[in-house]
């Protein structure tokens, strides 16, 4: 019950954020965005024709009602139809989001789980060669562009110049085997890049926890290393780690896969967003922006609840 009340309060507190994001995106995408008038008109339009199309598009109306209309769309989550495919935007989203999740999930999980594992190893052997090796590898991962990693793995694994094991591009989830064939190369590229950043971040968090006073206390009372790691270090580092993981979810769902999907031609929401950017498909863009903002508020709520579960000092009040 307490949780429910708290969540409600938090969601209400997230309204200014959603308002801000929608306001900015409305200003940039719609109000100052591309003028669609001439796309809808034939050659040599008359002044009346222009005026008619402009009023159809709502360009002749003042800012506030137009923004309120957008807000109404956000609340009902009805953004109308895509301008390029004329498909209902909500249908597009519900079709493409699962694809994006299927694409991003393996890399997301592996990148974080391996990141925490390598970070623990590096932190435990802090200053030794194993730490230097892992952190050197992380530094390399951080210095390589995601795009270069994608192309690199594609050359190595998918091209006739490399091992030629996987399809060059595309997407197919009809059988688990097909899914594996198509998801492997994007996942490898994602993990390779994510590991650099994650390992560094998690190691810093863990090292900081390792030097806390209570860790010294536990040592002074004869706590064996495994227990020390679990009870004093891992549990206390969970807060920043969970925060990072949860806050990356909105981007994974929406834009994180934009590059992957447009590069490999995978029909997820990233590809849809990219196409909408290129064609200036406003209904789709508005929906994507609003969805990200809402996911952000939810992520914030989730991390707060996680804090509560891990750290007794945080109360839900």
């Amino acid at each position: 019950m307490e949780i429910l009340q708290y969540s409600l309060r938090k969601l209400i507190a997230g309204i200014p954020l959603v308002l801000g994001v929608t306001l900015i995106s409305f200003l940039l995408i719609v109000y100052f965005g591309p003028d669609k008038t001439y796309d809808l008109l034939g050659k040599n339009p008359t002044a009346e024709e222009i005026a008619e199309v402009r009023s159809q598009l709502g360009y002749d109306r003042p800012f506030v009602p137009r923004y309120l209309e957008y807000l109404h769309e956000v609340i009902t989550f009805d953004f109308g139809n895509s301008e390029s495919t004329d498909e209902k935007v909500s249908t597009i989203l519900s079709r493409t989001i699962p694809v994006s999740i299927a694409l991003a999930l393996p890399g997301f999980i592996l990148g974080n789980v391996l990141g925490v594992m390598f970070a623990l190893l590096a932190a435990y052997f802090r200053g030794r060669w194993i730490d230097k090796f892992i952190m050197g590898f992380a530094a390399i991962g951080m210095s390589i562009s995601f795009l270069i990693a994608i192309i690199g793995f594609q050359i190595l694994l998918s091209s006739s110049d490399g091992l030629d094991l996987f399809p060059v591009r595309g997407w197919d989830t009809s059988t688990p085997l097909q899914y594996l064939r198509y998801v492997t190369v994007p996942t490898l590229a994602t993990v390779f890049i994510a590991l650099g950043y994650n390992t560094r971040f998690y190691r810093a968090v863990i090292v900081e926890e390792m030097t806390r006073d209570h860790v010294r206390t536990a040592k002074a009372f004869g706590t064996p290393p495994a227990r020390l790691f679990y009870r004093n270090i891992l549990k206390n580092s969970m807060i920043p780690i969970v925060t990072r993981i949860v806050f990356s979810i909105p981007f994974i769902v929406i834009s994180g896969s934009l590059l992957l999907e447009s590069y490999f031609g995978i029909p997820g929401i990233g590809k849809v967003t990219y196409d909408a950017i290129i064609t200036g498909d406003q209904p789709v863009l508005k929906a994507v922006v609003a969805l990200t903002a809402i996911l952000f508020v939810v992520a914030q709520l989730l991390t707060d609840i996680c804090y509560r579960a891990v750290d007794p000092r945080v109360s839900l009040k």
Binding site: I24, Y274, V288, F296
Partner: peptide, 19 residues
Amino acid sequence: MGVLDSVPFILLVAAIAYS
């Protein structure tokens, strides 16, 4: 800051490019 953080980066670039 919170608002700008919540707009996907690539979308923001595109939106600014539009405007």
